[in-house]
């Protein structure tokens, strides 16, 4: 087969990605993803605000000042409180990062924490039908006549990435709206900035699972099976990570440490940490996702479409 120029290959990839967005715009898929993220994000932010209110009122009682209707009135005191630090310890599971994390608006921190839990499954689930559905209905043949399979799969992956980015951005906005409505925001712009920064980290975190979903979609013709495989794969990644950590505690560190480094879950700390650590995660997680998509491509390239 003729090797296309890099420019032509990128051009086709972007064209496929753009059309993926055009298709998503007109379907339940985009709306469902955006709504799910927005509802989950807005709802969890509201719940978190209630917890803050509780903590602030406990603080107010201990300080002998009147309780407040809206959290945020005692932000400075709250940030130094042990109650909040215990909550944060529960969220990020790492004492050494708490001071760095608490520099961010609390709502943004919670938004990222929620995304850490929700995004993998949602991303994998939604991405799982991006190719399998079109192979099943043979709709994919119209594009495969005109471009390479590699460009098709990476184009679809890129389209799904853009969809995820839009969803997370809108979810961040929803969280901001809920916080604006329920809290006293001393610095709304800073909260907005924090939510955007955390949305970007959530996006990076979602990429490996998006890649897994696309890989499953490349490997089987049935969208249902692709979704099931993607969900099993996502769960398996976390279970596998847990087993590797356990094996390390049992003295097998020499063997399992390289594998732990590969596991996306081990990059959560880097995403919390900020700075160079987050930048490295920003390189590693997309690369990991692209490798998964590439592995799926090896299956698709040998299959009848």
């Amino acid at each position: 087969m003729t090797e296309p120029s890099l420019l032509l290959s990128f051009r086709d990839t972007f064209l496929v990605a753009r059309f993926e967005l055009v298709r998503a715009r007109r379907t339940w898929q985009a709306m469902a993803v955006i709504l799910l993220f927005a509802i989950a994000s807005g709802g969890s932010t509201y719940g978190f605000v209630q917890i803050l209110l509780e903590i602030e009122n406990n603080l107010a009682a201990s300080l002998g000042v009147p309780p407040t209707d809206a959290p945020g009135a005692l932000t400075d005191v709250l940030l130094g409180s042990d109650d909040l630090r215990r909550v944060m310890r529960g969220l990020i599971n790492d004492w050494s990062l708490i001071d760095d994390v608490l520099k961010w608006p609390l709502v943004a921190v919670f938004h990222f924490w929620t995304s850490l839990i929700l995004v993998p499954w949602l991303a994998a689930f939604v991405a799982a039908d991006t190719i399998s559905e079109d192979v099943r209905t043979r709709a994919v043949r119209f594009e495969l006549l005109r471009t390479g399979r590699l460009e098709l799969v990476y184009g679809r992956f890129l389209g799904q990435c853009l969809l995820l980015a839009i969803s997370l951005f809108l979810a961040g906005l929803t969280s901001f709206a809920v916080a604006w409505w329920t809290m006293i925001l001393n610095d709304p712009l800073y909260v907005m900035y924090g939510l955007l920064a955390m949305s970007l980290r959530a996006f990076l975190w979602g990429l490996p699972f998006l890649g897994l979903g696309v890989a499953c979609s490349e490997s089987v013709k049935s969208p249902t099976w692709a979704r099931i495989l993607a969900l099993i794969g996502t769960t398996g990644m976390f279970i596998g990570h847990g087993i590797l950590i356990w094996l390390r505690t049992k003295g097998y560190g020499l063997y399992v440490s390289p594998l732990i480094g590969v596991s996306p879950a081990s990059w959560i700390r880097s995403l919390w940490a900020g700075g160079l650590d987050t930048a490295l995660a920003g390189l590693y997680l997309p690369a990991f996702a692209m490798v998964l998509v590439g592995l799926g491509y090896l299956v698709l390239a040998r299959r009848d479409a």
Binding site: R138, A139, L145
Partner: peptide, 18 residues
Amino acid sequence: PWRLKGRLGLLPQDADIG
């Protein structure tokens, strides 16, 4: 697909156009 870009048009029998 690269050599035949724009030179081959094909209507598959039962492919869904979405």
